[in-house]
Design a protein around this nucleic acid. Structure first.
Length: 620
RNA sequence: GCACCGAUAGCUCAAUUGGAUAGAGCUUCUGACUUCGGAUCAGAAGGUUGCAGGUUCAAGUCCUGCUCGGUGCACCA
């Protein structure tokens, strides 16, 4: 492209807005500031309308603003609309009900955005650019020497999807897998390894053997069980202390457990398509733990208690006048009608450290190393209380850090069986993740074999892999992350309804039309005139426009389910379009225009699924 | 006991700073098509959003009380 061509392309790129409702919002702000100078425009948003009968976009903020300004809502709306010039993009703005503004886009304005997207100028959003933020995302975090189980799906899937969305929006993201490789369980594991290891079993299935050792020794160390043996417990504790003090033999065994576990992690993450920039487990922070405790004690933020060291409400807020109300204080709990301490332990009476200490050291490292704007912890909701304490301690420890770096716990609910209780296998155990992935692929293979018996086995297996793993991930991401949900093989693999196979199938249909269309008519869809005449064409086009808005909402609320619902809506809108509007059989220029709709739909479906960690395939 | 989270159609789940007549899917029933791969589409049926109050122009969403369920409450992570 010559210089002139480049300059023209830039001018044309400036003329077209990638996100129409943000342009409407900008003009609405200007109108409001003209009619009512000094108004607070921050909350004045233009967003997709809940129902097409109200138009395409709406603003409901003027009703709230009218109260602040002390004027009648409809009058305010009338005065603002009088200053608003959006006639190039919309039909005349309608003031509805108590003071809603309804915007109805002109098909030509929509067509212009689609044409720009087809030229590759944008995909319905504006990357963060100068406003890009730096995130550290802490997710997955499996335990060394234990099998990854069903519980790890959520953290891994939600975390990975958030990472992908944030990166796509142009943010800098550092992923860190905070492995559980240094806790109390290693005392028991070391004892088990030294006294009751079965080398043959270890060679056959290392993780299963390590799990067996842990379970056996744990039963002897648990004082609530009849098998409890205090001598064994003390020995196990001693092994841990030796490990954490740098004992060579124990470090060697621990390293071997680590290596064996990493093989498992690599295998599972490989299948899931998940990767990490860093894998800094708890052990990485061992050298700094004593320093964290010393510092907190020296600053008076922690004190000794019952041979342990802990952070208390009275060490954080020595002056009772500043102390939060007991109900809002993460360091108090009511027992028998009285508020008593709920301290956060940072050093145990046996000299060992707790994960609170490790988590504090981890914050220190991440802040110093990466200066993030935000650290996101994708961790089970049951740990909410821990994170409240952790974030509070961090804020007292280094207020400058928490002023710069926002700490966010992104919690999630549990996966249940049909009985609404946590999912278990038939024999009452927690299902292992690898077995779950196997079963997803096996069940998908059965379905593919039924539908497409003519395909060679290798092809069917590849389709089954993409469909099975996609179904499993999609089911997990579809409910709001804070909800518990019921795990159901038949439902997730169903070819109808809000499932990955349905969305993947609509993608294959769109991709097929594009392939066939290009084959017959190469090059003709590069910059066709976009004609939006039929209802189904318009509905599909308008949904495409909202892709970027959806990504922003996912990032703002840490909720991948918004993207699931979006791709499902887009897929079903495509299906309605495909049913009603012939593409390849249509006359020009309709044909090229519809082909472009197919192309953009395929692109957005493919990318949207990819941001959910789900692959697509050309045929199913 | 206290705190946190939840309770929405028969079932599984949504619902964007509080926004308009609470939406999907599954199931059931009915219909469309000599398919640009029907693994499709259309229509119907299905609700006092756990209960009782309150705030608001507007409440599934916010506040208060209650019922039921889940989770967490010092040396596991």
């Amino acid at each position: 492209m010559g210089l002139l061509g480049l300059a023209l392309a830039m001018v044309s790129a400036q003329k077209v807005n990638a996100v129409l409702h943000l342009e409407l919002e900008k003009r609405l702000h200007a109108a409001l500031l003209t009619s009512h100078p000094g108004s607070n425009i921050n909350a004045v948003r233009v967003m997709p309308a809940p129902d097409t009968k109200f138009g395409d976009y709406q603003c409901n903020a003027l009703m709230t603003l009218a109260r602040v300004l002390g004027v009648a809502p409809r009058q305010l709306a009338t005065e603002v609309v009088a200053q608003l010039n959006v006639s190039d993009l919309c039909e005349p703005v309608e003031i509805a009900g108590p003071g809603f503004l309804n915007f109805r886009l002109k098909p030509d304005a929509i067509a212009a955005v689609l044409a720009a997207a087809a030229r590759g100028e944008h995909l319905f959003f504006v990357p963060a650019g100068a406003t890009a933020r730096t995130y550290v995302v802490d997710f997955s975090s499996p335990n060394v020497a234990k099998p990854m189980h069903v519980g790890h799906i959520r953290s891994t899937g939600i975390g990975d999807s958030l990472v992908k969305v944030l990166r796509r929006l142009g943010h800098r993201v550092i992923t860190d897998n905070h492995l559980g490789d240094w806790g109390t369980q290693f005392g028991m594991l070391l004892l088990g390894w030294k006294t009751r290891l079965d080398p043959k079993a270890l060679a056959a299935d290392p993780i299963a053997e390590l799990e067996r050792l842990y379970k056996e020794v744990n039963a002897l160390c648990d004082d609530s069980k009849p098998t409890f043996d205090p001598a064994i417990r003390d020995t196990a504790k001693n092994e841990l202390v030796k490990l954490q003090a740098g004992d060579e033999e124990n470090l060697g065994i621990w390293g071997e457990m680590q290596r064996l576990s990493q093989l498992q992690f690599d295998s599972v993450y490989g299948r899931l398509g998940v990767g990490f920039d860093y894998t800094l487990g708890e052990s990485f922070y061992n050298p700094w733990l004593q320093g964290v405790v010393d510092e907190l004690v020296a600053r008076g933020l922690a004190r000794s208690s019952k041979d342990a060291v802990a952070v208390f409400a009275d060490t954080l807020w020595p002056d009772t006048a500043n102390r939060p109300a007991p109900k809002d204080n993460a360091f108090l709990v009511q027992k028998d009608g009285e508020w008593v301490d709920q301290p956060a332990l940072i050093k145990k009476s046996d000299g060992g450290f707790n994960y609170m200490t490790t988590d504090l050291a981890t914050i220190a490292h991440r802040v110093r190393e990466w200066q993030p704007d935000e650290i996101i912890y994708v961790v089970d909701d049951r740990q909410a209380a821990h994170f409240r304490q952790l974030f509070t301690i961090a804020a007292h420890w280094h207020p400058d850090w928490t002023a710069r770096t926002r700490l966010t716990h992104v919690g999630f609910g549990k996966i249940c069986g049909a009985d609404k209780k946590p999912l278990k296998t038939r024999d009452g155990n927690t299902p292992k993740l690898a077995a779950l992935l196997d079963e997803a692929e096996d069940r998908a293979l059965q379905l593919v074999t039924e539908k497409r018996p003519e395909l060679p086995e290798a092809r069917r297996k590849e389709i089954a892999r993409v469909v099975g793993l996609g179904a499993l991930k999609y089911q997990d991401l579809l409910p709001h992350r804070t909800s518990d949900y019921v795990f159901n093989w038949d439902k997730m693999l169903a070819l109808t309804g809000n499932t990955a196979p349905y969305v993947q199938y609509q993608f294959t249909r769109a991709a097929k039309v594009v392939r066939d269309g290009r084959g017959q008519d190469l090059g003709r869809i590069s910059s066709p005139k976009v004609v939006l005449a039929e209802d189904q064409e318009l509905a599909l086009a308008k949904l495409l426009l909202n892709y970027g808005h959806t990504l922003n909402r996912v990032a703002e609320d840490y909720c991948p389910n918004f993207l699931c619902n979006y791709v499902y809506e887009l897929a079903s809108a495509y299906s309605r379009f495909y049913d009603n509007c012939p593409v390849l059989k249509a006359e020009e220029p309709t044909r090229a225009s519809r082909l472009l709709l197919c192309e953009l739909t395929a692109k957005v479906l493919q990318e949207g699924l990819a941001l959910l960690g789900i692959e697509t395939i050309d045929e199913m």
